[in-house]
Each structure stands twice: as C-alpha cells, then as structure tokens.
Amino acid sequence: MVKEPLNIIITGVGGQGNVLASQVVSAAAVQAGYRVAVGETFGVSQRGGSVMSHVRLSLNRPCGPLIPRGQAHVVAGFEPLETMRVLLDYASAETVVIMNNRPNYPLGCLSGEHRYPDPERVEEAVKKMTPRLHVLPATELAKEAGSPLAANMVMTGALAGSGLLPFGRECFISVIGSLFQGIVRDLNLQAFESGFRRMDG
C-alpha cells in the first residue's frame, strides 16, 4: 500500500449519495482484508448542505474517523465547489482529485446574492493546489446509465478505476451486487462500470 493509512475524502452536497459511496468503499476494503474507519459529516446537511466522508484504510492499525488537515491523499468530489472547499482544508500538493464537473447551486447563488464561480475557474483553482486532477462528467454518465442520481456510483467506479486503492474492481462489484436488487442493481453496476472505464488507464 502506498500510504499508511490511506486517507480518502468523498465530498458533495446532501442528497447526492455521498454516504452510500463511502459505505461501498469501506465494505469493499473490509472484504479485501483492510481495517477501515469512516467518519461521516452530514447531519442536517443532508438537506442541501455540504457533506463529506472521511475514509481511512490501513493494513493493520485502527484509525480515528477524521483525517487531519492537509492529509487527504485522494479526494473524490461529487460537485466542483465542494471539492474546492475540501481541498482548501485537506489537500496537500500530492493529493489526487477526481471531480464531477456538474455544479449544484447553493441557495445564495440561485437567488443571485452570490455568484457560483465559473466552472473552468474552479478547475484552474483546483489545479493550482494539486496538479493531479481528473475531471469527469459523472452526472451525464449516470444519466446515460439510466438516472442522474447514480452519479455517486459513477464516482465510485472512477475511484476504483483510478488504481489508487489497494484493491480491485471485484470487491466493489460484489459489494454493489449485495446492496441492491433487480434493475437498481443493474443501473448502479452500469454507472460504476462507466466511471471505472473513464479512469482505468
């Protein structure tokens, strides 16, 4: 394993299915024999606020549920602004970022009091902090797979396909397979695969 522990942050907006993604990662990790600690920050933020899951993987030591500042190795951002927010606190120059390019507008931006930063600018800003940025249209890919809501599984697929995790595709597939049934399972697997293909190689 590259890092011990490996610190991953999955971030987005309440309702985007962050928690499910972090659960899939942690279950896959345990299946692969790792120790995991996941800290979820959501609470009322499930109602449109910023949400963030800290996922920490280790070969043998128990970790606390929260990653210290500047120590995230991988950030999977379901939403550009939230990715930026997390990076400001948790990134180091080596952090690898996988980012969905689809904005989700805060109320203040919808009302016109604040401006949502230009998406290209967000990408530039992220690159300023860490050059290892992968942007993908996760929401669009999810739509192709059948529902924009499956963007979380596209992102999970991208994370799995990035080669940054010490275990492979099969662990994920079996977890997703055990979590869902019927057409929902098919949809999520398809979304996962499309994210995986994007990042694999």
Binding site: P68, G70, L88, S92, V126, K128
Partner: peptide, 23 residues
C-alpha cells in the same frame, strides 16, 4: 496543520468568496 502553498492563489482565481451552502 498540513497545508498547500498555492491556497491563496487558487482562491484568488475564484474572485468571489466561496459561496456558502445554506441548508
């Protein structure tokens, strides 16, 4: 705490302050 050098530069690229996410 760990941090990165280019934080301010990155922020200045966004011109505005990062909009908060109200519930």
């Amino acid at each position: 705490p760990g941090t990165i050098d280019n934080k301010q530069e990155a922020l200045s690229l966004l011109e505005d302050k990062m909009p908060d996410r109200e519930l």
